[in-house]
Each structure stands twice: as C-alpha cells, then as structure tokens.
Design a protein around this nucleic acid. Structure first.
Lengths: 356, 356
DNA sequence: ATGAAAGCGCTAACAT
DNA sequence: ATGTTAGCGCTTTCAT
C-alpha cells in the first residue's frame, strides 16, 4: 500500500509520518519518545509508518529544543599510534565504552594529534554535538581542560591533568589511581625484602602526573636514600625502560632492586638486566606498575607489579559524568563549592609474582 | 567594559553577539562564516564580542538549515582490541584522518563491537550528526552497507564489503587494493624461482573479501596444481599463521614455497618453519602480503611481500567521499548509473627482500 | 488522548 | 553593506 511518500529525495520528517498515519506531529513525537498517553492502536499505526518510511529522527532538530542528544565525546590527545600500542588505553577505553553504552549513550571518539586541531575540536565540543566529554591521555599543559571549562561542557578526566605554566584548571573532575600510594607499597616491598640500593625508572614526569606521583611515592619511602643517581627518567615505552635500566647499571653497578614505573618499561628493564647478566630477582629485584595482563604475566620471570583497575576507572569516569549530565538541575561543580561531584582516586594493589 | 552578558547561565547565542556589537544577527552570521561583504571595522567589533562572550556556534541549529555540519563518521565494526593490535588499521586510519582534517572536516570515530549496538549507531548516522561515513573492517554480511544505503548517507567503504546470504549491497563505493593481482604476482614470483610445490596460508575467506581475492589470485596462477592439501585457512593473526604453517608441513612435508596472505601470519609462519628446522628461503620460500614496515622489515630473514599503499587508500576513501558530499547537486550513485563516482582498486607491488 | 502553535539558534533569500 | 523575515524538524506548553 503506497502511502504518502517523500518524492523529492529528502529524508522523511515527523510531518511525513504524521500525514502518513493521520495524526498530528505531537502524537507521532509522543510515540517516538515512548511517552505513553497514546492509544495502543495509534501507536501501532505510527510505528508501521515509521518503519515503512524509514524515518529516523533528526537529532539536530531535537537537540535544538531538548539540549541533549545522547552522545558523549571521548577525547584523547596523544599521537594515535601511541594509543594503539598501549594496552592501558585499550582497557581504559573498553571500560568507558561499556558504561556509556549501558546508559544508552553513543560514544564518539575524537583523537587530537596536532596543535592546530584544537580549535576544530573545540568547536565540535561546544557545538552541541555531545552532552559531555570524557578526556584522557592529555599532554602536560593541555588546553583541553580550560576549553571545556569555558564551554561549560560537563567533563571528566582520566588521570589528573598536569598544569603547566600559569593557567590553573579550577575544579576539574578526574579519576585517577592512587599512583603515589601504589609506588610506596612497591618500594616498601623491595625494602622489606632487605634490598638496600633501590633504584627507580620513572615515567616522563615533565609530561604526566602519574609519573610525578609514582616518583613521589618512591621518595616517600626512601627519603634521603633516594640518591639522584638511582633515579632515571624514561618515557613509558619498552625501549625507554631498557635504556634507563642500562644507564642505572652503568652508574650504580651495585644496585639490588628497581622500581619501574610501568609494566611496559619493566619488560624492557628485564631485558636489559638479562643482557647484563643480572639474575632477577636474585641479583636485582624488580617491581613494575599497571599490572597489564598481556605484559606482566608473560615476562620472564613473571612480573611483580602494582595492580590498578583500569577498566573500572574507565567505567567510573562515565558514571561520574552521568551524575552530572543526567540531572541538568545540578549546578556546574566549577563553582566555589565542589558540589556532590568530585574527583576520585582508586586504590591500587601489589601483585607479587616472581621478580620481587 | 561590561557589555551585554548572558546572566541565565545559558551559552551565548548569535543574538547575544548581535546585541553586544550593535548589529543584526545576519551580519554576525556573515562574520562568523567569513562571507566578506562586511566592513572591516564591523568585523573586528563582532570578533571582539565573540571572544569576550566565548561564543561558539550551535551546530545543531546550523545543521538544521544547511544540512551539513562538517563532521564525518569513521566506523569500524570489529572488536576494539583487534583493531588496536593491527598496524594496518593504524595506517589506514591515519590516512583517513589526514585527508579529512585537510578538508576541514572533523573525524568522528565509532566502534561497533556488539550486535545490539547497530540500532544506536544507525540512529546516530541517520540523525544528521555527520555529513557522510567512511566504513571499514566490516564483518561479512555486515548490516552497515544496507543501513547507510537506506539512510541515503554518503558513504565509502574500505575493502569490498562481503555480502552474505540474500541482501545485495547495490552500488556501494569502496576502495580496495588489487588483492587478486597482488597474490598472482606473489605466486608467479615463487614459481619463477623454480618452486614446484607452492602452498598457501589464506585469510578468513568466509569473513573477508581480501582473503577470498588473495586465494583466487593464488589459484589463478597454479590452476590444477593448487591441490586442496596445499591450502590452509587461518585468521590473519600471527598465531593462526604459525598453526596453519605447521599443519601444511604435516600434510605436505615436501612443500618448497608458501604464499602467506598477510605479513602478520607470515611472521608466524616463519617461526613455525624455524621450529621445524626448515631454512628460509633455501628449503621453503615465503612471500607475505601487506608490507607493514614494523613487521616485514624485522622478520628473520626480512620478508618478501606484496606492498599496498594503506595510508593512501585511507586518503582516497576520504577524497571519494568528499567528491560526493561537497557537491550536493550530484546524484546519489546508488541509482542505476554509477555516476562519476565508483569504486577504486589500487595497485600492489611485490617487494623482494630475503625470504623468496 | 490528541492537536495547535510557539520557539530552540541558525542561515538564506529578499529587501533596502 | 546591512537588516528583516521565514523557516529547518523537532519538543513542549497549552487547549480541547
């Protein structure tokens, strides 16, 4: 049965569905949005026409009046391939997506690689395409926190954003692991094993808060024993970990333990130790950080490391965001008062395997 | 200087900017969209107010009238971690993003993992959020081609979509490498080397067109010599390649060459050959497919393989899409006539290293 | 339970 | 060069 059809090649609108089913636009709208208060008979007829016409609501029109569109931006400002290589990112994103999808929100991914992409992404975020944003893997001093703040876009960060030079991010909400506490536990474990010259391979502490915090945790425990030559900075990559380990061994051939601030770097460090003929853990005890199964369980020997619930942190970010976007009455927590919504630091846990 | 400000906590609109700078909405709109025909003096004043108010255009409102919003969806329907592991995806996506960004379009990534995500993604794609879609890594029989067709959304596919059971994708536009030709060249090379029992490890030819095509290329050359026991199917993973190679060696210990349908699988195959004590290329010559630098250049020995310009294919997809979205006057090439726009098959090239 | 009408923020004729 | 006006497709009072 050929009902009213759009002949002009345009997509069908609410109006078309209304005509096709002999009711008003309001009624169709009610059916689409499942508002009840419509006779079952009418509901069915409208549904038929919707299917027949292939009608899909135009969310621009809808957003214009409701101010929402059920999409959440997930933003990562890091070179794409760095993200793809990193199992951390995979897990984190998985957690985020699960929770978003469970809430019926469409996750929309945005990658930022170049400096000049910020304005365009800013326009996108401010343009009403999304109800909120989840941002992570930011560079130090990233303009993103300031941008979402200015836009008044509800946002939650993964990892405490590291501010650089001047501009302070006022009340940005973030989810982060207890990096400092985890590092303390790792180093205390090494000390409790009787190790006396505990070195550390750090992350890029000029770039990432997690690296700063893990180094601070190391210092908390060792205090004055944390000699500068026992500390070597690397970049969270496997190769960087190997090189840093080699440098440490050159400077302090007598070191008997090392806290490596990520599993990936620890894998590199183990390799460097092997190449230098050091036995692990007999000569040198090693503790990593992250507990990424594909790495920590497969190193030789299996890695003692600090566990963090990465997927859970992703889910938490999403839940925190929803606590804001779901109730528009809630005030922006950017005000003086932090509101019901504040940052969360999740616990870590030492997982003892065979390297320490 | 305190000009007119929004006091109600809402985001500023065109109207606010107009009031603040003492001109009409139209003029502000012209300034925003850089249409010229506005006095420099006025332009400057408007720009000031825009900055002062932190005005960002609401693209929902804009989309409603222009039908465009400068965003392109990039859709991958594969388990997220499969994508992240695969260097192919990284390169492909890089090419796509580069071209999109060069055109001033915002790439918006959507991942599909579960069956039940399709409706939501369909609503998103049909909801006017994006001007077009670039889709790749589809599963066999994926509903996506049918969906975008029905929505009338301009789309270009990466890799020829494999139809399964019934529904044919009418005139879907895709970019694909000359998989069949490349495979032919690879196998011909092995034959020209004097190899007489050339086996093949195929991709999942029940799932991906590329696997079908590469197998067809192998058969094209060998004709009746392509005995069933010389053909072993795998899944484009390293482990799968190793297992398939082992199976082939069990069945035909006398094989003297193998065409492996991806570099990742070839890496696995080389390992299996080594474990079985076969020398490469002396005992068994090996040719791969893809020419992914991080793999092909680092295998031992370096891999002879079929090169395809993956990043270029990504860029091409984007360009093809723009040729459609840029000129709305152009008819949908879904009509009987293919129009100026049709699929592109890009050439491949044999890269001879040390395994054949 | 249903319809009529207003309006979300913007652009695009059409005036001037 | 600038302003006025009429919608884009939808939701949402407010009537009925």
């Amino acid at each position: 049965m050929a009902r009213t059809r759009r002949l002009n090649g345009q997509r069908p609108t609410l109006e078309d569905v209304a005509r096709g089913s002999g009711v008003s636009k309001s009624t169709v709208s009610r059916v689409i949005n499942g508002e009840g208060k419509v006779r079952a008979e009418v509901v069915e007829r409208v549904r038929e026409v919707v299917a027949e016409l292939g009608y899909v609501p135009n969310s621009a029109a809808r957003q214009l009046v409701t101010r929402r569109n059920n999409a959440i931006a997930v933003v990562a400002s890091q070179p794409q391939n760095r993200l793809f290589i990193d199992p951390f990112f995979d897990l984190h994103l998985r957690g985020i997506r699960k929770e978003l999808v469970a809430h019926g929100a469409q996750p929309v991914l945005l990658f930022l690689e170049e400096e000049e992409e910020y304005p365009r992404v800013g326009d996108f975020l401010g343009g009403g395409h999304v109800d909120g944003a989840l941002l992570f893997s930011l560079r130090a001093g990233d303009p993103l926190p300031g941008m979402v703040e200015r836009l008044g876009l509800p946002a939650v960060f993964g990892g405490r954003p590291l501010v650089r030079g001047g501009e302070t991010v006022r009340d940005c909400v973030y989810v982060d692991a207890d990096n400092r506490g985890g590092a303390r536990e790792a180093v205390r474990h090494l000390v409790s094993l009787g190790r006396e010259r505990v070195a550390t391979v750090t992350g890029p502490y000029d770039q990432e808060a997690s690296a700063v915090d893990r180094l601070d945790g190391y210092r908390d425990v060792l205090l004055d024993d944390a000699a500068p030559e026992l500390i070597e900075r690397a970049d969270y990559t496997r190769r960087g970990g190997a090189e840093a380990m080699a440098a440490l061994l050159d400077r302090r051939p007598d070191l008997d333990a090392v806290f490596v601030a990520s599993d990936l770097m620890a894998a590199g460090a183990l390799q460097a130790l092997r190449e230098r003929g050091r036995r692990v853990p007999d000569d040198v005890a090693v503790v990593g950080f992250d507990d990424l199964a594909p790495i920590a369980e497969r190193t030789d020997p299996p890695l003692t490391t600090v566990h963090q619930d990465i997927e859970g942190m992703g889910r938490l970010m999403a839940r925190l965001l929803f606590s804001r976007t779901d109730d528009p009455a809630l005030p922006q927590p950017t005000a003086a008062e932090p509101g019901a919504l504040s940052s969360v630091v999740t616990p870590t846990q030492l997982v003892i395997r065979d390297t320490a």
